[in-house]
Design a protein around this nucleic acid. Structure first.
Length: 450
RNA sequence: GGCCCUAUCGUCUAGGCUGGUCUAGGACAGCGGCUUUUCAAGCCGUUAACUCGGGUUCGAAUCCCGAUAGGGCUACCA
């Protein structure tokens, strides 16, 4: 069996689109699954829209994702103009194409372009996901294949390069399904062999329109910036339009490669779902817990402006652990910090009197008394100061007074928040001395200005 | 408009080729409960779908036709 060679051929006219990444991923997976090769080709025949900045973004994106291409040097269409040029001249000489005089309709249009002589036949090809597709190409007319002898347009350069690179399987987005017949016509004019095609369904926005730049985050860069893991992103992308033969959903890259089958690719466009992506990302975070915790720590230092030298290692570990449970992706850490959900571990919170009220009930002086009782119990503790021992110490008193009436203000005194981890956990992290100090300070706050 | 593609829970999907075992399965989200105060995490449970109309057949989510709806292409963009 001939070796399978797939490719991903982006045009550098914008930042790498997340939907393009999926096309690339499917090409990559199919090649790797079958022991073949996966190539990258930069399609920059449109000189006015192509920018080196975008090319760099595309290349950097794939490097970050680890979707490494197998061609040794980067294949860029602008480096192969001479090849297209010779072929266009050949087609003209064979009268399979001709120079056509035109009436320029828009600015920039030429008065002379090169058109293919359309044999006006019915073209049939087999698509690996859609099955047999057949189209009467008469409607296409003598379409343009180049603006001039050395300015081929997409369809022409694309066909030539697939042949030059030895591509066997063209796996690309469904928007190209309608372009395939004309590319086959060019192929036939050039005398090239047929290729296998697989047109994968598009990634859609929630209203089923094509996911475009207008609908928010669509570039890979933005997702990476939000702190999604590459493997999670790739995992989610794979599930969008493909399904394994079992119910497994969380995959590592090697697992994806061995499970992937083009036969199980969906025909219908799939709507992008941020919630599911978050879930997939969280699952990957759990699989890479240590890496994730290091990253959380790093972000915490930065956003909270902490001095690594002065922060207690145990405190930090405990806080990292709490943060880990509350995030789906790294950018969520910034939100936690923005909402003051971690600062209280490092500094006294700012209280609101009403915040101490359990279900809006009670008098402030009573609450102060309860906090005072808690503070004394804790202050008298000796030996091991852990969430378990703290709980054992406080529990009988809480039971007696009504749990909520003791535990809620206790927790609020420590965190200053309506929602936070339970007081025993916080108290352990804060350590005995800080817990006691903070309780006293809270009591002071409650009694002073009442 | 023309041509092409598509159609199962809100979303991603299994099943459809090889009709009955599908009173349609899983996951995310939602909802409810448990986890001895709130949140998070976890666990358990639960709501929810075969676009419609014909046909073939003893029998159709599954096969055929049509309608409808959505998407793509229709560039001297890719």
């Amino acid at each position: 069996m001939a070796k399978i060679i797939t490719r991903f051929a982006p045009s550098p006219t914008g930042y790498l689109h997340i939907g393009s990444v999926r096309s690339a991923l499917f090409s990559y997976l199919y090649a790797k699954k079958n022991g073949g090769k996966y190539f990258l080709r930069i399609e920059d025949t449109d000189k006015t829209r192509s920018k080196i900045e975008y090319e760099k973004d595309i290349i950097a994106g794939f490097q970050t994702l680890g979707l490494n291409w197998d061609n040794e040097t980067l294949y860029r269409q602008s480096d192969h103009i001479a090849v297209y040029s010779a072929l266009i001249k050949k087609l003209i000489a064979e009268d399979k194409a001709y120079v056509s005089k035109e009436e320029p309709k828009e600015e920039g249009e030429r008065s002379e372009v090169i058109r293919l002589r359309n044999p006006n036949k019915k073209v049939t090809f087999t698509d690996l996901v859609h099955g047999e597709v057949s189209v009467d190409t008469t409607d296409l007319g003598d379409f343009v294949i180049a603006k001039s002898v050395d300015e081929p347009i997409f369809h022409f350069a694309n066909v030539v390069d697939d042949h030059e690179m030895g591509i066997t399987h063209v796996i690309r987005g469904e928007e190209h399904l309608s372009n395939t017949p004309r590319q086959i016509l060019i192929q036939e004019a050039l005398g090239y062999d047929k290729l296998a095609y697989a047109h994968i369904p598009l990634v859609l926005a929630s209203d089923r329109s094509k996911l475009s730049k207008r609908q928010g985050s669509v570039s890979l860069r933005e997702f990476l910036d939000k702190g999604y893991l590459s493997e999670a992103l790739l995992n989610y992308l794979a599930l969008l339009g493909w399904h394994p033969s079992h119910d497994k959903e969380i995959f590592t890259m090697p697992e994806l490669i061995s499970a992937f089958e083009l036969e199980r690719v969906q025909k219908r466009g799939a709507i992008w779902n941020f919630e599911k992506l978050d879930w997939v990302n969280k699952e990957h975070l759990k699989m890479n817990r240590e890496t994730a915790e290091n990253k959380i720590q790093e972000v915490l230092f930065k956003t909270l402006n902490l001095n690594p030298g002065t922060v207690d290692k145990n405190v930090l570990d405990a806080v990292v652990n709490i943060v880990f449970e509350r995030i789906n992706k790294f950018s969520d850490i910034n939100e936690l910090v923005l909402n003051n959900e971690v600062q209280y571990f490092f500094e006294e919170p700012k209280w609101q009197k009403d915040g101490f009220l359990w279900k809006g009930q009670g008098a402030f002086h009573e609450i102060a008394d309860k906090l005072s009782a808690v503070e004394k119990l804790l202050g008298a503790m000796e030996g091991n100061y852990s969430k378990e021992t703290i709980k054992e110490t406080i529990w009988p008193y809480a039971e007696k007074e009504g749990r909520g009436f003791v535990l809620w203000p206790f927790r609020y005194a420590l965190s200053g928040l309506a929602k936070s981890p339970d007081p025993f956990v916080i108290a352990e992290i804060l350590k005995k001395e800080t817990t006691v100090t903070r309780l006293k300070s809270a009591i002071n706050f409650l009694t002073n200005e009442s």
